[in-house]
Simulated assay, not measured.
Amino acid sequence: MDNGNFKLDADTVKVMWVKTYNTDGKPDWSHIFPYYHDQIVFQDCIQRIEGKENFMAMCDRLTNRCKSLRMDLTNVVQHSNVITMEWKMTMSFRKSPDTPIFGATRLTLHEDGRIIEQRDYYDIWGDIFNGIPKFGKAYRKFMHKYFG
């Protein structure tokens, strides 16, 4: 396969990743999968996934769980073979209201220009708990007391 068509840069990320998520329905990653190397390693605070097939299966599971999902990107920057972006992802599950989660992603590019490593950073519980009356404040107070 000629990977020349799938070399990634910060400008391409800004265009392609926003197309992935929409407010009219389920997310669709099919247009960005060619930018991922077959040996991709994905990691976030919940899981570590190795291999493109496993990564695509994880994306399908997220799609099936969400009623809707939207992502707004900010501060997409590139330094050498690393692209970093900040984001706000708004998800809605079966019976729950829209829940915003704030985070950042580091994409490391393989020498062929495709993503070989993706690391997502976010505080899933803090952002979800913020939407629960009274509980969000208690969670933040607990975190401040025990973790500074």
Rank of each mutant, 00 (worst) to 15 (best):
G126K: 03
T74L: 06
F142G: 05
G113L: 01
Y121E: 02
E86M: 09
Y36S: 03
F129W: 06
T84A: 13
Y21K: 01
I128M: 15
S68V: 06
M91T: 08
G113K: 01
R119E: 11
G25N: 05
I124R: 10
I128D: 04
C45S: 13
S30D: 09
F129C: 09
V13Q: 00
T105Y: 00
D11N: 15
F147V: 09
H79L: 12
K67H: 08
Y122S: 05
N54K: 08
S92N: 12
D11E: 15
D2A: 11
L62D: 05
L107K: 00
P27R: 01
Y21I: 01
N5V: 04
H144R: 11
Q78F: 05
D38N: 12
T63H: 00
D123R: 05
M58Q: 07
N81P: 02
K134P: 02
R114H: 02
P27I: 04
T74P: 00
R61W: 07
H110E: 08
C59I: 09
N75V: 02
N22S: 15
N3A: 13
N81G: 06
M16Q: 13
Y21R: 00
M89F: 05
T20S: 09
D38P: 04
V82C: 09
L8N: 00
E111I: 08
R94P: 04
D60T: 13
D44F: 01
L62A: 07
P34S: 07
F147G: 15
P27K: 01
K67C: 06
V41T: 12
E86F: 05
Y146H: 15
A138L: 15
A57C: 07
G51R: 04
K141F: 12
A138T: 13
T108S: 10
C59K: 08
Q78T: 05
V15Q: 14
V76S: 04
S68I: 06
K67D: 09
K26H: 10
Q118S: 14
P133H: 12
R119Q: 12
Y122A: 04
H110I: 00
T63A: 04
F142K: 09
K67P: 01
D98V: 03
P97Q: 12
F102N: 11
Q47A: 13
R70T: 13
Y139H: 13
I101D: 01
L107E: 00
G136W: 03
M16F: 04
V15E: 15
